[in-house]
Structure formats: structure tokens, C-alpha cells
Amino acid sequence: MRNLILEKIAIIYLRAILIVSVWLLLRGHNEPGGGFIAGIIASTGFILYAIVYGSTAVEKTLRYNTRNWIGSGLLIILIAVVLPLIWGKPAMTSIWMTLPDSISSYVHIGTPLLFDIGVYVAVIGIILSIIITIMDVLKWNS
């Protein structure tokens, strides 16, 4: 049986939670938050979506296979780790971009942000691959 209200709520919740997770990801370096937490929170949105619409529908919204999500997350982490070598610094050193004075007080762009984005993508991929596998095994809403 279709439940129209739940379906609408799932979509709205997914959108809202994605915005919240991106906000958490960006504030993460100096305040509570960060890639891991943001990734977990974002995946709750996808999990509700999966429970309501089924696992095939959530795979379609993700566009890419969960394995690819994990892989690209790890790739971004690898880039963030080896990027400092270009500047002749040891791997995993934080490199920050120098930005114009007008915004430099509240915008910081550097390798830790890239690292966090990688963690974010990888965590979403890992959690969803676990959930989708469990749903497929239990034949839950498919």
C-alpha cells in the first residue's frame, strides 16, 4: 500500500538533511561536525528514502553504485594526503589557500576540507552499501 504522506515526508527530509549535512561538513574543522558525522547524518536521509521507496529507488537517486561512492571518497582522501608533496612538505600537512582579505576571516579552503569531503563521500557509500545489502537479503520493500 502506498502512503502518500510518508513518501512526501521522505523526500523533504532527504533534502533538508542533505543541506544540514553539508553545513556540518563545512563547519567541521573548527567546531563540532566534520566529514564523518556529516556523512552519517546524510545517510540517514537516504536510509529513510530507501525504507519508503525500496532499495532500487535509492540506488537510482544515488546515480552511481555505492562501491563507486566509496572508491571516489577514498580517491579524494588520497589526493588530499599527497597534495602537500607538490609544495615540498611532508604528506598530510595542512595547506591552506590564501584568499582575499574580505572573505578570509570566515572562509578557509585547504587540504583538510578536501580530506573531510573524501570522508563524507566514503562514509555515505559505506553505510548505504551495508543498508542496501541488508535490505536486498531480507527482500525488504523491493
Partner: peptide, 20 residues
């Protein structure tokens, strides 16, 4: 970097294996 490569090489293979 000389030592980190021993961790990064297997790591790179792992992520390639996920993408291929």
C-alpha cells in the same frame, strides 16, 4: 613520503579495485 608509500600503494589499489 618514502615510508608512507608502503601504506599509500595498497590504499591506491584498494580504491582502484572499488572503481573497476
Amino acid at each position: 613520503m618514502i615510508l608512507l608509500a608502503h601504506i599509500l600503494l595498497p590504499f591506491t589499489y584498494i580504491l582502484l579495485a572499488l572503481l573497476i
